[in-house]
Design a protein around this nucleic acid. Structure first.
Lengths: 206, 206, 206, 206
DNA sequence: TATGAATGAGGTTTCATTCAT
DNA sequence: TATGAATGAAACCTCATTCAT
């Protein structure tokens, strides 16, 4: 059909993996997790199904990988410092807003994660571990760059951050994917912001 | 072959519908939502698959019906009044503990609900509406029996109750079925109790 | 395509099961076990694949069933009596010849059994049990109809028969499907006949 | 990227072939014949799949090669002479016991061989030829070192040995991998010993 | 010679739903 | 109304083999 043949092999392992994940995510966003088959992913990615299974053990594995790279890196370092040192409402609100906005943008993807965890939470233990490690490392970094925080035990800080992050994530998921807390986002953000600050104070101040 | 058949259930439409739903829920609890097929429900209910499709137009329809009318009413009236009027920590803590205990006792049922909502949340809009109506009615009742609360607008009270209930439910689900907030329940209950009270104060006190 | 439609349902469960097994066996004989797919069985039987799986749990299950009905009933009652009472060479030789001929006629089927047992012998425990029960019942019958045998303990007779039957089966399988004992069948039959009689004498005479 | 690659094996064709076969056999033992793919062999051998197909033209070809040259030589020369000249029960029993013990020790290997032969017996014709040659040579050796046997035609001796060896092998395989002849090994060994001697006598004595 | 990414037909099995009886 | 046999698209996944590099 096409005399101008593409080369058969690209030797681009990384690129392929990325392509598969991206295609998978795109399709999930378009159709929802349960409506995306591995064959469809292959077709849409322009690969054979065998290639998919060369790189991933199973469909679940693809989903899993899709989340390994997405540990939210939209958290601004100086914002966090400000929040931890001053409990500033406005800054916190911005953080919450951003988090919500991100979840709305990738609505279907996060929903897929919700589904996947509900169906098989074991698969996500690693992912969870990664997040915890990330937060722990992040909070240690924060602690070491602010005199005011240095006197608080490392664990206290990371626990407080873990807790508030988990809270934030939970409430956003509930609001978007399950049962809305409020009819408009503005009120929701206000509420979550307050709970977030409340949580931090609760565990950081003694 | 044998004309002398026993009638199975004497046209008991209601009874059959109930039986189907109960069987469906039981199987979900035993095997998880994704592992229950309509054919299995039929078999376990001692009905034919055709009969099920006489009463329900699809599998989704059964799921939908299954979560109507299952509102848990283990909330004690006088406890709620005490909480709303005094924000008493101990009483609230008891409420939270009970809620958690109930979810642990009926772990599989609640988990199944979690799964079902994750996979098909649209189906649960009605269910949600029912809960809201229930809480609204309940809070109106509360309001009318306590002078102190009568001056607060009805909507304010029901909103506050809705919000804190939703929060409680969300956090318990997250803790049990997704990502534990704390390693032991004691700490978790303490945390949730504080958030619960915080929420009530936030919306009831102006 | 065909206005003269066949009725869709036949309500002939037994017939269907028989048809599936027969088709399966026929295809195995034509192509060998590993080359017969369930889809092919469905196609050749004129059924949909779903129908196959309504009647059988798995491919292995079909194979299994195929053997449940084949407990060799070509053994002549009076022949056995003659053999057990006189150890007659000629009669025994006839039995062995028949057994060999049967296996040659259904070569691929027996070979499939061989393969299946090698791959998953657990599946055939039931089958084996059935054969043992059959032989036990058969030998009890024999014992009760011959005065000469009545004084020998039932277990002794059934054990001797079991052993010699197993021996016969084993050697025929080895000869046909693995490593020929002799280049021509005549010599093989002679040898096996002698071993068969030797075994019987060994365990029946004290 | 890095031109300074270490050579893997210095063109060691023999070594690679050996490695492939050994890996293949090891994996069969570990996982069963049907669960070993060529790709897995490559991975476990630390070679690329391409390399395997440089040395073997197909999977069958590897299997074929794997069973060349593995003739077990645990048969003691003087034992055989004693058995052939005196039909001594005790010595024969020892031989049978050893054979059984060897198969129990290398259970998985022998079972794998069983599987492999069942699935693809054609491949083993050569292997069988080798065994026959080995036995023929062995029996010639025996014949020439014992006056008593020298007068018997060479073919008679090797046939008798071939037959009894095949019998022994068959029965041990059946006992271990398919359908046990007896519940305990002691009885089994006794029975096989008797059949073994019976066979020898049958073909050696005229 | 060595590599290993890529192939894709084909395997087994599931299950919501239909419809003749 | 009740039955349940029948459907068949579609799911996930395997693996011997090829061939450009």
């Amino acid at each position: 059909m096409d005399d101008n043949q593409e080369p058969k092999f690209h030797r681009d392992k990384e690129g392929k993996i990325k392509l598969i994940i991206e295609t998978f995510v795109r399709l999930i966003i378009e159709k929802g997790y349960t409506n995306v088959s591995t064959n469809l992913v292959a077709k849409e990615a322009g690969l054979s199904i065998g290639t998919i299974y060369n790189y991933f053990k199973s469909k679940e594995d693809i989903l899993h990988s899709a989340f390994q790279g997405t540990i939210e890196d939209f958290i601004d370092f100086s914002d966090i410092i400000k929040i931890l040192t001053t409990y500033d409402y406005k800054t916190t609100k911005m953080l919450v807003s951003k988090y919500l906005a991100n979840h709305k943008e990738y609505y279907q993807l996060h929903k897929a994660q919700d589904q996947a965890i509900a169906i098989n939470q074991d698969v996500f233990h690693n992912y969870q571990k990664n997040i915890e490690d990330y937060i722990r490392a992040f909070s240690e970094q924060v602690r070491q760059s602010v005199v005011q925080l240095a006197k608080i035990p490392a664990e206290t800080i990371s626990n407080a951050m873990m807790l508030s992050t988990n809270l934030l994530d939970t409430l956003v998921h509930q609001h978007l994917f399950r049962v809305s807390f409020f009819e408009n986002d503005e009120e929701f953000v206000d509420y979550v912001t307050k709970l977030f600050i409340f949580t931090l104070k609760l565990y950081l101040k003694e």
